Amino acid sequence: DLRKKIVDLHKSGSSLGAISKRLKVPRSSVQTIVRKYK
């Protein structure tokens, strides 16, 4: 699940930009998912 991957990467200390590059999703999507998770 993409959300879980993003949250896991964020927990392990990756920046939003790094996560978005790695998973090839827009940075804004990463930000939204991380914000919802918090």
Rank of each mutant, 00 (worst) to 15 (best):
Asp1His: 11
Asp1Gly: 11
Asp1Ile: 12
Asp1Pro: 09
Asp1Tyr: 13
Leu2Asp: 02
Leu2Asn: 05
Leu2Trp: 09
Leu2Met: 09
Leu2Gln: 06
Arg3Met: 12
Arg3Gly: 07
Arg3Trp: 15
Arg3Val: 14
Lys4Ser: 09
Lys4Thr: 09
Lys4Phe: 08
Lys4Leu: 08
Lys4Asn: 09
Lys4Val: 07
Lys4Tyr: 08
Lys4His: 10
Lys4Gly: 06
Lys5Met: 14
Lys5Phe: 10
Lys5Glu: 07
Lys5Asn: 07
Lys5Gly: 05
Lys5Ser: 08
Lys5His: 09
Lys5Ile: 13
Lys5Gln: 12
Ile6Ser: 00
Ile6Gly: 00
Ile6Gln: 00
Ile6His: 00
Ile6Met: 03
Ile6Pro: 00
Ile6Leu: 01
Ile6Ala: 02
Val7Ser: 03
Val7Ala: 08
Val7Gln: 06
Val7Ile: 15
Val7Thr: 06
Val7Asn: 04
Asp8Trp: 13
Asp8Ser: 12
Asp8Ala: 14
Asp8Arg: 10
Leu9Cys: 09
Leu9Trp: 05
Leu9His: 02
Leu9Ser: 03
Leu9Lys: 00
Leu9Asn: 02
Leu9Thr: 01
His10Lys: 03
His10Pro: 00
His10Gln: 03
His10Tyr: 15
His10Arg: 04
His10Ile: 11
His10Ser: 04
Lys11His: 07
Lys11Ala: 08
Lys11Asp: 06
Lys11Gly: 05
Lys11Val: 11
Ser12Leu: 13
Ser12Asp: 08
Ser12Pro: 00
Ser12Thr: 10
Ser12Met: 12
Ser12Glu: 09
Ser12Arg: 11
Gly13Gln: 01
Gly13Pro: 01
Gly13Trp: 00
Gly13Thr: 01
Gly13Arg: 02
Gly13Lys: 03
Gly13Asn: 04
Gly13Cys: 06
Gly13Glu: 01
Gly13Leu: 02
Gly13Ala: 01
Ser14Tyr: 15
Ser14Met: 15
Ser14Glu: 15
Ser14Leu: 15
Ser14Phe: 15
Ser14Thr: 11
Ser15Trp: 02
Ser15Glu: 03
Ser15Ile: 00
Ser15Val: 01
Ser15Arg: 03
Ser15Gln: 03
Ser15His: 03
Ser15Gly: 09
Ser15Thr: 08
Leu16Glu: 05
Leu16Asn: 07
Leu16Ala: 10
Leu16Tyr: 11
Leu16Gly: 03
Gly17Ser: 14
Gly17Glu: 11
Gly17Trp: 07
Gly17Leu: 09
Ala18Gln: 13
Ala18Asn: 10
Ala18Tyr: 10
Ala18His: 08
Ala18Arg: 07
Ala18Trp: 07
Ala18Ser: 11
Ala18Asp: 13
Ile19Trp: 00
Ile19Leu: 01
Ile19Gly: 01
Ser20Lys: 02
Ser20Met: 04
Ser20Cys: 06
Ser20Asp: 01
Lys21Glu: 10
Lys21Tyr: 01
Lys21Pro: 03
Lys21Ser: 07
Lys21Arg: 13
Lys21Trp: 01
Lys21His: 08
Lys21Ile: 09
Lys21Leu: 06
Arg22Met: 15
Arg22Ala: 15
Arg22Glu: 14
Arg22Tyr: 12
Arg22His: 12
Arg22Gln: 15
Arg22Thr: 12
Arg22Trp: 08
Lys24Tyr: 05
Lys24Thr: 05
Lys24Asp: 09
Lys24Met: 09
Lys24Ser: 10
Lys24His: 12
Lys24Trp: 04
Lys24Arg: 11
Val25Lys: 03
Val25Ile: 13
Val25Pro: 01
Val25Gly: 01
Val25Trp: 04
Val25Gln: 05
Val25Glu: 04
Val25Asn: 03
Pro26Ile: 05
Pro26Cys: 07
Pro26Thr: 09
Pro26Val: 05
Pro26Trp: 04
Arg27Gln: 06
Arg27Thr: 06
Arg27Asn: 04
Arg27Ile: 14
Arg27Trp: 07
Arg27Ser: 04
Arg27Met: 13
Ser28Leu: 09
Ser28His: 11
Ser28Trp: 12
Ser28Asp: 08
Ser28Ile: 08
Ser29Ala: 13
Ser29Pro: 03
Val30Ile: 10
Val30Ser: 04
Val30Gly: 04
Val30His: 04
Val30Trp: 00
Val30Asp: 03
Val30Glu: 02
Gln31Val: 14
Gln31Met: 05
Gln31Ile: 14
Gln31Asn: 08
Gln31Pro: 03
Gln31Cys: 14
Gln31Phe: 02
Thr32Arg: 15
Thr32Asn: 14
Thr32Gln: 14
Thr32Tyr: 09
Thr32Ala: 15
Ile33Trp: 00
Ile33Ala: 08
Ile33Asn: 04
Ile33Gln: 04
Ile33Asp: 03
Ile33His: 05
Ile33Tyr: 00
Ile33Met: 03
Ile33Phe: 00
Val34Gln: 01
Val34Trp: 03
Val34Glu: 01
Val34Met: 05
Arg35Met: 07
Arg35Lys: 13
Arg35Leu: 07
Arg35Ser: 09
Arg35Asn: 11
Lys36Asp: 11
Lys36Leu: 10
Lys36Ile: 09
Lys36Gln: 12
Lys36Ser: 09
Lys36Glu: 14
Tyr37Gln: 06
Tyr37Asn: 06
Tyr37Trp: 12
Tyr37Asp: 06
Tyr37Val: 08
Tyr37Phe: 10
Tyr37Ile: 11
Tyr37Arg: 05
Lys38Leu: 14
Lys38Val: 10
